[in-house]
Design a binder for these strands. Sequence first.
DNA 1: CGAGCCGATATCTCCGTGCGTATGGAGACA
DNA 2: TGTCTCCATACGCACGGAGATATCGGCTCG
Lengths: 302, 302
Amino acid sequence: MERPELPLPQLHAFVVLAEELHFGRAAARLGIAQPPLSQQIRRLEDKVGHALFTREPGRVALTPVGHELLPVARRALSDLADGLAAARAVGSGRTGRLRIGFAASLALTVLPGLLRDFRQRFPEVRLEIREMTTAPQLTALRERTVDIGLLREPEEADRELDFRTVLTEPFVAVLSHGHPLAAGRTVRLADLAEAPFVLLPREAGPGLYDRILALCAGAGFVPDVVQDAVEWQTVCALVETGLGVSLAPASIRRIRLKGVAFRAIEPGAERTRVAVAWRKSDRNPLVAHLLATVSPQSQATR
Amino acid sequence: MERPELPLPQLHAFVVLAEELHFGRAAARLGIAQPPLSQQIRRLEDKVGHALFTREPGRVALTPVGHELLPVARRALSDLADGLAAARAVGSGRTGRLRIGFAASLALTVLPGLLRDFRQRFPEVRLEIREMTTAPQLTALRERTVDIGLLREPEEADRELDFRTVLTEPFVAVLSHGHPLAAGRTVRLADLAEAPFVLLPREAGPGLYDRILALCAGAGFVPDVVQDAVEWQTVCALVETGLGVSLAPASIRRIRLKGVAFRAIEPGAERTRVAVAWRKSDRNPLVAHLLATVSPQSQATR
DNA sequence: CGAGCCGATATCTCCGTGCGTATGGAGACA
DNA sequence: TGTCTCCATACGCACGGAGATATCGGCTCG
């Protein structure tokens, strides 16, 4: 890439003069006096090394050289103007691209509303959403391959990342329809002590996994995890077959499966948090816009 | 067209920095010290209104705004560089476009050699040739719709145009094979006094027409023009049918028609001139190149 | 032949920019 | 904690470019 030789203001003057073919009018359009325009053109011609206009009395016309340069100059100027406008639009957060990682369990709850609201407010922004479990989201945020994470039970303190709770929800017991505990309206945790458990693997989201184990520990038992599955959808399907029971965030009630019953936990003080995560250092206005869209509604989902 | 906001040198620095992502190395590539580079970028960011790079210790990266602006800046810079090179090529006469008007009768004689020589010396020049009679050529030259004219018997003095004789050639009598005069090797003009004539219309080329009439007047008669035709080809065809005879520049011998005979004029001192014409004020180097290509060869065509 | 139009030239001012050197400050690393 | 790297900041200088006004010179036209 060479050092630029032609100043843009001179090219601008050149283009205007090529349109007017009259120094006086062109100068007026440029908002300057006529002599400076003559100078501009002269300097430009010196740099190009050839005359760009023929000046015969009463007739200003492009030379072949000028004719060659004109479309180039015109295009460069308008490209730069357009590009600048586009860049500013990105800077203002009116347009651009936002990459969002999200936990699969949120695809049925917070995510649709969030996308809808955001798209409504910023229709020109391209949203790239990719399903990932919690741990990969944190990695992706640090590696800058996503800009926003939607995840459960994040570690609180982080040097690079910030979190904000989007919602908290209680846990529910997931039971097969035929299970004896499905008869009541609620379930005490201790009642699940002897039941085999189906859970998401710890690697997928250590935070949530550890929360669930802590819950059980609080009720005096260590769950017997007989199976894991990477999707809540699959967990429910396994529960339906009678393989075991599960503990899950209440929002998975949205998964409607015939043979599966969800029962609130008694007493139910424990809640799981869904958070939005982003890089503290991120100055992308779209991140701020998205954070503004997920107003910190602590409202619970029963 | 708006007044340009972004100085090219800053955009250049921006592009280089975006490639290096390192102020020190980018400055070295630009051949300047590091602080000036920081300033350039800062000023550019001020004008854009948004940061173009994130500077975290040990890591320089493009912001979304910078990412948006980069391809635009790159393209504008390279377009301008290319366009400038192209314009200079045109200015040097190495490339460009040259519009040539020519009399149809020359399509068989001087034109092919001229085009061949010129194309050989300037292969990158686009030649646009258009067949026109003499008078329209002069008009087209004045209106700048052609740059070069190839014509017969131009007026000598002209305020705007210059001429140079390319070749001179004698006149020949055009006779049908069956014509009594076709029996001899030469023809005296006076022998044609009673014959009906076929000629080009005067409007097509007054110079040549008047020359022919002057020739006849010199031989003591006024030709009886019974028919005109805008192409020599057609004139020959009409002569072949026995409609009449004609007087023409010798080069139309190239038109080989079975039933047509060409006979030299006795004594044959009178010659017709073929000239190249151009605008005196034309500074297009291609015009000079073409004039140099048609070296003033006064050699006659018999 | 004088008036008017149009572009070039001369001269001056001012400001932005580009570049330098010197220095500061924040992380990273040993 | 000291050092090194890397970028930002401060300050100064010089140049070019953009603008203005005044004037000149050529051409056209009434």
